[in-house]
Design a protein around this nucleic acid. Sequence first.
DNA 1: GGAAATCGGGAAAAGGTTTACATCACGCTA
DNA 2: TAGCGTGATGTAAACCTTTTCCCGATTTCC
Lengths: 320, 320
Amino acid sequence: MARLAEVSTATVSRVLSGGKPVSPEVADRVRVAAQDVGYRPNPAAQTLLRGSSRTVGVVVPDLGNPYFAEILKGVASEAAATEHHTLVAGTDEDPEQEYRSAIELARWVDGLLLCAPRMSTPRLREVAEAARRLVLINRVLRHSAVGSVVVDYHLGVRALCEHLASLGHKRIAYLQGPTAAWSDQQRQRGFRSPEASGLTIFRVPCGSTLVDGQAAVDEALTYKPTAMICFNDHVAVGVLSRLRELGLSVPGDISVAGIDNAPMSAHTDPGLTTYAVSTIELGRQAWERFTPRVTTATTHLQGELVIRSSTAPPPHRPHR
Amino acid sequence: MARLAEVSTATVSRVLSGGKPVSPEVADRVRVAAQDVGYRPNPAAQTLLRGSSRTVGVVVPDLGNPYFAEILKGVASEAAATEHHTLVAGTDEDPEQEYRSAIELARWVDGLLLCAPRMSTPRLREVAEAARRLVLINRVLRHSAVGSVVVDYHLGVRALCEHLASLGHKRIAYLQGPTAAWSDQQRQRGFRSPEASGLTIFRVPCGSTLVDGQAAVDEALTYKPTAMICFNDHVAVGVLSRLRELGLSVPGDISVAGIDNAPMSAHTDPGLTTYAVSTIELGRQAWERFTPRVTTATTHLQGELVIRSSTAPPPHRPHR
DNA sequence: GGAAATCGGGAAAAGGTTTACATCACGCTA
DNA sequence: TAGCGTGATGTAAACCTTTTCCCGATTTCC
């Protein structure tokens, strides 16, 4: 203990952590000594006593997905601003691992940020019990001390549909997200009103990745749609790539729209029309849900339609 | 202490963690009790005593950059496989924050994975002292107990140059990475031999992001190059986007090549010629450097040239 | 001038787990 | 049969801080 080198034992604590009254010269002496010896309080000991690790956990399906990477970035940055650390875990889209990682991380952290589209509600509830504080992304759970930040995807989908309808589209393929994903169901909700207004939606099983998008195009085309709405921008990029392979022009032959406004979406060819969601804001809101004062309610985040050049009026005659 | 509910105190430890001899029936009783009470050992206490937190730290310039996201993913996955956790910090490309984050994280973790292109060598050495174990990405440091995983970028650059030269290119613009970044210097090394062989390289200040690429194009074009090599794929995507705006066709009017083979590079239009580096392998290698047995040397990782459609012979007459 | 209040500092306990050491019983061998 | 070794369990110390309680000293108010 470097503290002996100077004055005492508990005074060091007062100087370094507590805002307790300490005489200036003593405080200085302590600081100098700490500097000299390179003294650093042991985080484990601090955590043990304080009962708080000053750490938040982030569990997402895929760390490689730019969408989650952005959220992680937002949270990590907010956390760092208040001397907190960020523990991460990727779950490889596996519900079982979502659960295990969440439970495991919950032991360590003060607050857990969980994006687990596939976890069953009962298990989610278990996690809620295990975590001191839980914030869900794109999911809700009736439980005290659980906050949620959800993007109103149904609004996004509806806006995209209205945009496409106003261009004259009638037949739209929707490339679905992962089966049973909560946020996919939200998107599906958004089709109700457009469908009632005469739009025809063809639902095509797909997924959430670039490769999924690429693979789902051929099936989607069998419905002869004039436009495609993709589960997210990631998928849309895969779709654009496959359409190019097939020699179809976008938006000449077919229009394509994504959701999320991923960083790359402004730079695809053509630029991707999408429903923009601010991941920064999402991360910020999520972080705010950790602070005790906030009544742990659900925050709804609205995006906005970003119209780029991947959508246009349908061709006069169906392609092919 | 839930343990009192059953038998004793230390026996619980023996059952749950140590492989110490315990009679089967007692072990069962403990397990059942733990299950009932939902008992979980306190990680802080374990860490305090064990002297190891079973945690590794990852510090990267930008968590939103897919390249680092992939590395993080690789490490987190390897870590999870051995019951370790992953602590992350983004530094927003700020050398000062690189240092602070690294030092701070070093207190918590068993091993630190550091990607700090801009940190000065003396500070890097300080971090090496503070960390129990340090692994550097794309950087080397003469110091015991410091491992490195570096990509041989000079080989990549040379390969790209040779590829372009074989297509007939003579004037190549290189869009530089962040000033003073170690890995940019490595790339620059790769130009020596091509320059000696008669290739002309124009160096253009740029950066590491999509937006940097977009912004640097105009200056690069003033040199009237027939090809551009970009610091990384991220930059290249920005370049493609700007060239499209300017009405220049790739590779018709000008060839473009990136470095890293980011996930999106196969799906740009045109597909990006690049020097492919396996981030998975990088993460794996980095993780291996944490295990004590490895003689903490530098691992050199070689990529391979991936030729897609963004490179082609130069136009017969210089554009414009 | 004396007593009370306030401020600064020191000693010790607490926080939950692991592990070394001590204890105890049982079985095997001489 | 007695002694010794082995395997199972309990006890207590150690890990490293923070924080509470308490005491001494200085200042202020009556």
